[in-house]
């Protein structure tokens, strides 16, 4: 059996440091020791395959809770998932979760004094098509306070979970909205050192995704790790 082709290491600065002091909860949780370097094996270069039959998609978060319409500004989020070589990642599962329009999660741990919406649970699941494209309909989430520091507010965001083709390509991240004044103040967003990598977490308003008389559209393209050596820049 030939050796699997490994996924490339992350480019320095493009991923957040586990030790991010401005985000206080990292203080007692980041490992002090550098991770042990090891070659990727079949364990890391393979991964789960989720079938829509067993893991049914649910792409309209404005209607998937009770069937009644959720309150808030309706949005469409769409994009393409590719690898670092620009190849689409087809048929991969994407999980999303978010606060409602008032900035409140339908979660017992969220005690923010903002109303829940009985028609908005804030959870969705979609799969990319053969070209790596996905889309879902939701409500623009609200900003909300958190106890990290005095008067701390999280910028408006949607949580995303991606699998890709392998254990090594797993990614959990957050999508932000353009023009949010809270971005400059947020230690989680700013925990990504490279400004270009950081800015790619901000979705782009997109008139082509926007549907007339229905919802504003935002584009959020995501790149998962690619395999093999880094190609030479052209």
């Amino acid at each position: 059996m030939s050796d699997p082709i490994p996924f490339r290491p992350f480019v320095p600065g493009t991923q957040p440091a586990l030790n991010t002091p401005a985000y206080l909860s990292t203080g007692k949780r980041y490992p002090l020791r550098a991770p042990h370097r090891m070659p990727q094996t079949i364990t890391e270069t393979t991964g789960p395959v989720f079938s829509p039959a067993l893991f049914p998609p649910s792409a309209d978060l404005t209607r998937n809770t009770t069937g009644q319409a959720a309150l808030g500004e309706r949005i469409i989020v769409a994009g393409t998932i590719t690898d670092e070589d620009g190849r689409p990642v087809p048929n991969t599962m994407v999980e999303v979760w978010q606060a409602n329009a008032t900035g409140r999660y339908d979660h017992p741990g969220d005690q923010h004094d903002a109303p829940l919406d009985p028609n908005f649970r804030g959870v969705g699941r979609v799969f990319t098509d053969a070209a790596g494209r996905y889309s879902f309909i939701s409500i623009r989430p609200g900003a909300y306070p958190w106890p990290n520091h005095r008067n701390a507010w999280r910028p408006t965001h949607i949580h995303f979970s991606y699998f890709g083709s392998a254990f090594a390509t797993r990614l959990v991240t957050q999508m932000y909205f353009p023009g949010d004044p809270l971005l400059a103040l947020d230690p989680i967003f700013n925990g990504v050192p490279d400004p270009a990598a950081r800015d790619r977490l901000v979705a782009a308003f997109d008139l082509d995704i926007t549907q007339p008389d229905f919802a504003l559209g935002y584009r959020f393209d995501v790149v998962l790790r690619g395999r093999g050596a880094t190609p030479m820049e052209g």
């Binding site: 992350f10 480019v11 493009t14 991923q15 957040p16 985000y23 067993l54 590719t82 670092e84 070589d85 620009g86 999980e95 979760w97 606060a99 999660y105 339908d106 979660h107 741990g109 969220d110 649970r121 804030g122 959870v123 699941r125 949580h159 979970s161 990614l171 959990v172 991240t173 957050q174 989680i188 967003f189 925990g191 990504v192 490279d194 990598a197 950081r198 790619r200 977490l201 995501v222 790149v223 998962l224 790790r225 690619g226 190609p231």
Partner: peptide, 29 residues
């Protein structure tokens, strides 16, 4: 080409996507 998208914390509210049955990998027989 582009580098891999940055990670962000899963945060305290990821249970919204939790399905307790996923902890049993034998559930499909």
């Amino acid at each position: 080409m582009s580098t891999a998208t940055a990670s962000q914390t899963i945060g305290p509210y990821w249970h919204l996507i939790e399905d307790e049955s996923w902890a049993d990998l034998t559930r499909f027989g």
